[in-house]
Simulated scan of single mutants.
Amino acid sequence: MKKLIKLSIALSILVFTSCNNKVEENIKMYTETWDEIINSGNLELINENNFTDDVTLIYSPDNIVGLESFKDYYSNFVTGFSDVEFTMKNVFGQDDNIVKHWHYKGTHTGDFFGIPATGKTVNIEGVTLVKMNAGKIAQEQDFMDNMLFLQQLGIISSPENIGIIDNLYKAFDVGDIPSVLGSLDANVIWNEAEGNAYADGNPYIGPDAVLNGVFARVGGEWDGFKLVDIELHDMSNNQVLATLRYNGTYKKTNKAIDAQVAHLWTLKDGKVIAFQQYVDTKQLNDVTKK
């Protein structure tokens, strides 16, 4: 009886060790293969030696199946980006299953699924579920924040942009200029409309330049200057278009304006990095003449 127990324990240890070795071999093969494919751009490693013939990427609306389709899909990440840094932050497995937590960073300098190069940098993390079969990669399913990825590419804008610009206008309305300036990036590029008297300082670089070159002059030269009928329009490439009107009275001539205006705001990481004004400059110039 004791001999049977010892034999059973020995067999269990052998099986456990064998399983562990298999998992370790799968993880080693998997990590080395993808490191070479993404970081070195070696797409030829997507072959029958490393992947099953019917390797499948679980995808919506249709799965991507087969070596060539699999290679075509991932070629977009290799040829569409430069300065690529692909790291696996954590990898673990059980039996033929692997879970990887990864980080991908690169600059969009080539065609990416038909999207021309934007020059923007993406910095994203995700998780992939993997199934192995006889030491080969048989199936993958990626989980990542696709919305954030597209925002970083500038294909869609951050949903926070409208709120940031709305708060900026509300602060301006109550005379809270520090809050307005606080919404601007330290190196914001600000341009007044060509033909506007305040365009003499274009481009204003930084909040202090905007304060002294635009806001201080507006406050000193106009009575009751107001922005009214403001409507905000979410744009691609992290831009917000504002359509509005200027109301106010020019102090030196006592003439009033009701001018049609558009502001184009560009944001990054929650800050305004660029501003372009479009306005009825003829009306602005007419009210300054006695």
Rank of each mutant, 00 (worst) to 15 (best):
V84F: 07
G248C: 11
G213I: 08
D185E: 08
V78Q: 01
N167E: 14
V214W: 06
F77V: 01
G182W: 08
L211E: 06
T17D: 00
F51E: 03
D286C: 12
S12N: 06
D62S: 11
G66E: 04
I37G: 02
L43H: 02
E221T: 11
Y73E: 03
G213D: 05
N123H: 14
T107E: 05
F149T: 07
W102N: 05
Y59F: 10
L4K: 11
D258S: 12
T52K: 01
T118M: 00
Q152A: 03
Q277I: 08
V279Q: 03
K120N: 12
A197V: 13
N202W: 11
Q239E: 14
N161R: 09
S82W: 05
E140D: 04
L153P: 00
Y250D: 05
A262L: 06
T87Q: 04
E68P: 04
V55H: 03
G270C: 06
H101T: 06
K71L: 12
W190I: 00
Y73L: 08
M29P: 01
H233M: 13
D62K: 13
H101S: 04
V261K: 11
V214M: 13
W34F: 10
L227R: 14
Q139V: 00
V287I: 10
H263Y: 12
M29C: 05
G219N: 13
N123R: 13
L4G: 04
C19M: 12
L129M: 10
A259N: 13
G219K: 15
G154V: 01
P207Y: 07
S179N: 15
I230F: 09
T109A: 09
G195Q: 08
A171W: 13
N212H: 13
Y73A: 04
T281D: 06
G80S: 03
Y246N: 11
G154Q: 01
N47W: 09
Y169V: 10
N20Q: 15
D166K: 15
Y30E: 03
G114K: 10
A209K: 10
I162T: 12
L150G: 01
G106P: 11
F215H: 10
P207A: 07
L267F: 10
G110I: 07
A209E: 07
T243Q: 09
Y246W: 12
S157A: 14
Y204T: 06
E36K: 09
T243H: 08
V272I: 15
N191M: 04
K105C: 06
L4E: 07
L14Q: 01
A199Y: 09
L264E: 00
F81G: 02
S236K: 14
G41Y: 00
T31E: 04
E68A: 10
F149M: 12
F92W: 13
V65D: 02
M88H: 15
V15S: 00
D173W: 08
I9C: 02
F70Y: 11
V91I: 12
K136A: 05
T17V: 14
V218L: 14
I38N: 00
D269K: 15
Y250S: 05
M29Q: 09
D83R: 12
V127F: 07
D83S: 14
M147W: 06
M235W: 10
M144S: 04
Y30S: 00
I156G: 00
I13A: 06
E85N: 13
N123P: 10
K290L: 08
N238I: 02
Y169W: 15
S40T: 02
T253G: 07
R217S: 02
I273E: 00
A117N: 10
N238T: 05
V210L: 06
G114L: 11
V261E: 06
E68V: 03
